Simulated scan of single mutants.
Amino acid sequence: MKKRTKIATLLTTLALTASMAACGGSSSSDTTTAAAGSSAAAADTSAAEAQTVYRTLDEIKESGTINIGVFSDKNPFGYVDENGEYQGYDVYFANRIGEDLGVEVNLVSTEAANRIEYLQTGKVDIILANFTVTPERAEEVDFALPYMNVALGVISPESNVITTLDNWNADDQMIVISGTTAETYLINNYPDIPLQKYDSYATAKNALENGNGVAWANDNTEVIAFALQNPGYEVGIPELGNKDTIAPAVTKGNTTLLDWINDEIKSLGAEQFFHADYEATLIDTYGADYEESLVVEGGEVPAN
């Protein structure tokens, strides 16, 4: 399998020679010191410039398979059912991508914290795992057009509903999932709130059920779904911070695949594909009332 790599090259020997000539010569100790300094500089530069690995659109087609990262424990967006089959809103989209690209789809289970890593190391070609678009993430991956709206929300037991994060009790902990926008938002905006961090949605849900934290902050779509499916919990804060969007992501610089996905999203919008996706995978959870507020067709987000 072919892979594209971008590696910075430093001409350290030439630089060292030029330096010696300019000084009119050097002792052996001077030469050793200069060489060591040049080697250290080269190592620092190489470490700073991350190596990215990806397959182009043509390489994916040639292989006959596309690797797409999805969640396996985030019902109803990406999860494994009782028959061991992947289901959910993102999975429905992933399967259509494979169909229109003319390749098999290999679904790769991912967690929130390793989505960027899986792209940068070439483990997946696309991430479709409820990936919220943020400026910080856009520095590390390339986002395609959005296909869903999202905000943050906070869920808590009905016995102690959290409706505000102001005047937080310093002894209480907030449950978050590592690598999510909820974690980043709380660190930046509420640094005094102690965070109970988990790696997966399943462990975060278990923590809430076991009382390991007074509340759980996550995508509002996730906490609303949890409240609807689990009596005894309430979303006391349905929107926290800014409204955002969910979009596919590819490895930084993989323009051929990015362009194809953008064209695909525009084309799917013409047939109202994401409304059909919602009605096939989400309506049992959210009902029809949330459909227009959550679905984005053709990559066009209505103005607030």
Rank of each mutant, 00 (worst) to 15 (best):
V214S: 14
Y86Q: 03
F93H: 02
A182L: 03
V124Y: 00
L152A: 01
G153L: 02
D100M: 13
M148A: 13
I155V: 15
I127Y: 10
V133N: 04
K197L: 13
Y147A: 02
G153V: 05
S156H: 03
S156E: 02
W168F: 15
L101S: 04
A182C: 09
I187C: 05
E99S: 14
N106R: 14
N130M: 13
N188C: 12
V214Q: 12
L208S: 10
D171L: 11
T184C: 04
N95I: 03
Y118M: 14
Y147E: 04
G213F: 02
L208F: 05
T184V: 09
N212V: 07
N149H: 09
E85W: 10
F143T: 01
I177L: 03
F143V: 03
F131V: 01
Y201W: 09
D166A: 11
M148S: 07
N169V: 12
N95Q: 14
N130C: 09
V154C: 09
P191R: 07
G88S: 08
G122I: 05
I193T: 06
D192P: 05
S156C: 05
D192E: 15
Y86I: 01
T121I: 14
I127E: 00
V108H: 07
I175W: 00
V161N: 05
D171N: 15
K205N: 02
I155F: 02
M174L: 15
G98E: 06
R115Y: 04
V154R: 02
D142W: 00
Y198N: 05
F93S: 00
A204E: 05
K123L: 12
T121N: 15
I126Q: 04
K123P: 00
T184K: 07
V150R: 01
D199H: 10
D142P: 03
G179C: 13
G213D: 07
S178W: 01
I162P: 00
E104C: 09
Y201M: 12
D166T: 14
S156Y: 02
